[in-house]
Each structure stands twice: as C-alpha cells, then as structure tokens.
Design a binder for these strands. Structure first.
Length: 282
DNA sequence: ACTATTTCCTGGATGC
DNA sequence: TGCATCCAGGAAATAG
C-alpha cells in the first residue's frame, strides 16, 4: 500500500531515470478510468512536455513539466504538472516498448528516449490529473495537510487539539497530515506507546511529542529501506522495499509483542484494521 | 463544523 | 475441484 515512504521511493526512482526526458505521446485506456482531469486535458498537457523533476507531495507523485513554448517567443515556457495518486495498487513503471503490456494498464507515455512510462492499477483506486500553472502565480499542486517530516512540534501538537476522533483516524486524515496511511499510523502509535482508540484531544503534550518523534523516525527509516512491500508494491524499477521486516504490530495480529510477548490485538477503527499491543500501548 | 459510515474496485485467501 | 464470500484500504461521497 503506497504511503509516504513508498511514494517517496517511487518518485525518487522516477526522478533519477526520467528527469529531462520528454513525453512524445500519451495513450489512455478507453474505459471509464479514474481520472481527475478529462482524458483530453491530460493528453493535451502531457504530449510534448519535458519532465523537469519528479517528486512526492503527500501521497501524490508530482511531475513538474515544461510545455512547449509558443513559436520561440522569449517568454517563460508554460509550466504544468502531472499528478499521480497510486491508490492501493497503482504502479508507475519504466518499461521498454517491447515489453508486453501488463493487465490493467491504464496509461502509457512514450518518452523521447525510447522508453515508456506505464501506469498499471488493478484495483483502480489510483487517480491521474493535470494542473496548468499560470505564469503569474506559479504555485501548482499542494496537498491539503502538512508534511509529517516537515511540520514542527508546535504545529503538530495543534493539529489534534479539541479533536474527539480516535488518534488513529486523525493520523489517517490527509487534511491534517498528508502521507500517513494505515501501516505507518499503527507503527508510530506502537512506538509512541499510545492506543489507536484514544481520543486525539486526550493526548498529553508529552504523548504528542512522543508521537511526532515516533512518526518521523518510522517514516525516515521506511524511506531508507525503500518502503514496505506487502502485496505487490514495487518501485519504479520493479524493486520491492524492506520495511515490512521492521513492522512491530501491522499484520501481526495474535503474534507476540516484540517487547513484552503479549499477543498483538487487531480492531477496526474508521473501517481500518488497527493493530496494537494492549500492554505496551496506553 | 465535525465525525462516522459507506462506496468504489479486483485478486487472493478462505470456507463449504 | 469449484464456486461463493470475505477482505485488503485511500479518499470521496453520504449520512448523521
């Protein structure tokens, strides 16, 4: 499941391999696809554009694009962005045109270098969109929530003030923090010793500081290991991540806590599996 | 204005 | 072996 570390890994890999390349043509599958922009708009923005950078914003992959200038005028070439959300099972893969198209391929970008960038997403929870950046403001795509690796302690603490929702739900709320998903929410709460059902507003300042530190630590470590590969997650080069080997509660229901040997519990919070140690987490 | 629940979607696992 | 059912979950939509 692509969360911040997995999306960061994919974005870095893509940036290394295709920054500077140009998009020659775009194919989008014809069935009603999960597009946030119309198919015509996506094709119009992408075709002929040069990829300047690929980076992560929240759980989104942002391709910063430079579109063709208008008849060689001395004005700044128009900018745009291609935004990709991988959803649950989305993959962006660099492939040779000779490689057979995988089932559930929804988009193929032919690159000037001769390679193809392919978007494959069996479960179709992924989303594609384009953003045109007006030369005047030049801001582009922004996630609604704060980046968990950039927010400071004061702002982090303020996010949860007066919130009655369980802290687990608050961590998953992308309007508060962007990039935290089910795995890293559970892992951070375990490392901070906080039960997922605790009301966000009930956490003390000390607990919130511990949670912030635990979240940063777990996300940084996961990025170092290339993310968690649970089912079919792989990066842009098809490599799996290794952070799943560091999971202490996620997917470990009934197995002994690595700290105190108490069996790990699993409950449903906000419709999501939530794993915790009933002894280590208060 | 918040919070909780439902819905979308398919492959793999499970059960009878 | 085969078929039905369940489950995974990000985020938008809907309900309360």
């Amino acid at each position: 499941m692509p969360e911040l570390p997995e999306v960061e890994t994919v974005a870095r890999g893509l940036d290394q391999h295709i920054a500077g390349d140009a998009i020659e043509s775009v194919w989008l599958s014809s069935k009603p696809e999960p597009l946030k922009s119309s198919a015509a708009e996506i094709v119009d923005v992408l075709e002929g554009a040069r990829i300047l950078h690929v980076r992560r914003v929240g759980k989104h992959i942002v391709f910063d694009l430079e579109r063709r200038g208008h008849r060689g005028e001395k004005v700044q070439p128009p900018r745009a962005q291609w935004i990709v959300h991988l959803g649950m099972t989305g993959q962006l893969r660099i492939a040779s045109p000779a490689t057979e198209l995988a089932r559930h391929t929804h988009a193929v970008l032919k690159l000037a270098s001769g390679r193809e960038l392919r978007f494959v997403d069996p479960r179709r929870f992924g989303r594609l969109a384009v953003v045109r950046i007006a030369s005047s403001d030049g801001s582009g795509f922004a996630a609604p929530g704060d980046e968990p690796l950039e927010i400071d302690d004061a702002d982090f603490t303020a996010l949860f003030r007066r919130r009655k929702t369980p802290i687990k739900s608050a961590l998953l709320n992308q309007k508060l923090l962007s990039g935290v998903g089910n795995i890293y929410a559970d892992e951070a709460l375990f490392r901070a010793g906080i039960r997922p059902r605790r009301r966000a507003a009930s956490l003390t300042r000390v607990e919130l500081l511990k949670l912030h530190a635990a979240l940063r630590q777990v996300l940084r470590h996961a990025v170092q290991l290339g993310g968690s590969s649970i089912n079919d997650y792989v990066d842009a080069e098809g490599r799996a991540g290794f952070f799943q080997l560091q999971h202490r509660v996620y997917g470990r229901e009934g197995r002994p806590c690595l700290v105190c040997k108490t069996p790990i519990k699993r409950v449903i919070i906000a419709g999501r599996s939530s794993h915790y140690c009933p002894r280590c987490q208060k």
